[in-house]
């Protein structure tokens, strides 16, 4: 892992922990942003952790860009030495795969896709060595995911699959981004899944949709009354496949304010995870099943 610093204009510094994605790079980025937040440096206005990088925005009239850069470099050792473990939560997210709404949308933007003759799922299944979409879907929800970044728009989580690298699913982004994506679409690009928090443009492949609202600016949804954004970096997600009836039922519950996501508090230790992935995931699932 080689850390690279770059100015982003005169108001930002971008820090790349590593060119490639790994949970080690994620933890280093998160530790660096935590250390930066604790350092309470005058002039810092935004601290943004990402999958394998992070960014700080500052007022160069208060702290000069080069001075900001030096402050960040000082924090790198702290970040490097930080424990790669956290107390977090595992959340069950119901997904209606192969739903009619993302299907209608992906057919509308077929000419922007690598394989205009099929669907996003058929294509993802084929290039990842599955016989059919069902096999790919099973792999998509078999193991938990780790929220390694929140962003793009309004609380959208990027999720990284908690499996060995050789088992990671990978799909390219659309050739040209779509101008439309249904709200709460479960998408995929590179090695990341995401959940589109709002309707809008998007470049990730579309696999399904969740009835669970994850962004509510009015804060009317029962579990979003404290804050409008549901996800934060470090959350763990288990996708759970549902059919149309269950989708409709949960959607009604969310709207009526009676839906409570299934959540359990868990500890995540990267070293323990790397030593025994299947065992760690089994423990995570045990915690969720007990919730």
């Amino acid at each position: 892992m080689k850390t690279r610093y770059s100015h982003g204009g005169d108001e930002h510094i971008f820090v790349e922990m590593d060119e490639e994605m790994s949970l080690d790079a994620f933890f280093k980025s998160l530790s660096m942003t935590n250390a930066l937040r604790e350092a309470k440096i005058d002039g810092v206005t935004e601290i943004c952790p990402a999958n394998a990088s992070c960014q700080v925005k500052f007022d160069p009239d208060v702290i000069a860009p080069d001075a900001m850069l030096e402050e960040l470099k000082k924090l790198e050792d702290v970040a490097e030495a930080a424990e790669k473990r956290m107390t977090t939560r595992i959340v069950e997210v119901p997904v209606f795969y192969q739903d009619p709404w993302t299907h209608e949308t992906l057919m509308r933007f077929r000419e922007r896709h690598q394989d205009p003759s099929g669907t996003d799922l058929d294509y993802a299944a084929k290039i990842n060595g599955f016989d059919n979409a069902e096999g790919f879907i099973a792999a998509h929800h078999a193991n938990p995911w780790f929220v390694s970044m929140v962003g793009f728009v309004s609380g959208l989580p990027f999720l990284y699959q908690l499996v060995e690298r050789e088992r990671q699913l990978q799909v390219p982004k659309y050739l040209r981004p779509r101008t439309d994506t249904p709200k709460q679409t479960v998408g995929y690009g590179g090695c990341f899944s995401c959940i589109y928090s709002v309707r809008g443009a998007g470049g990730y492949q579309m696999f399904g949709i969740t009835p669970m609202t994850i962004f509510d600016p009015k804060q009317e949804v029962s579990y979003l009354r404290d804050f409008m954004v549901f996800f934060r970096p470090g959350d763990i997600v288990k996708f759970s496949p549902i059919d149309r009836d269950e989708y409709d039922r949960i959607l009604k519950e969310v709207e009526a304010g009676t839906y409570t996501p299934k959540i359990a508090e868990v500890d995540f230790d990267l070293e323990a995870f790397n030593a025994d992935i299947a065992g760690t995931n089994a423990k995570l699932m045990e915690a969720l099943d007990g919730a």
Partner: peptide
């Protein structure tokens, strides 16, 4: 790099200034 996607203009999703 792993996770970036196949187009040469792709990176592992990161922050935009």
């Amino acid at each position: 790099p792993f996770g970036a996607g196949s187009d040469p203009s792709n990176i592992v999703d990161g922050c935009y200034p």
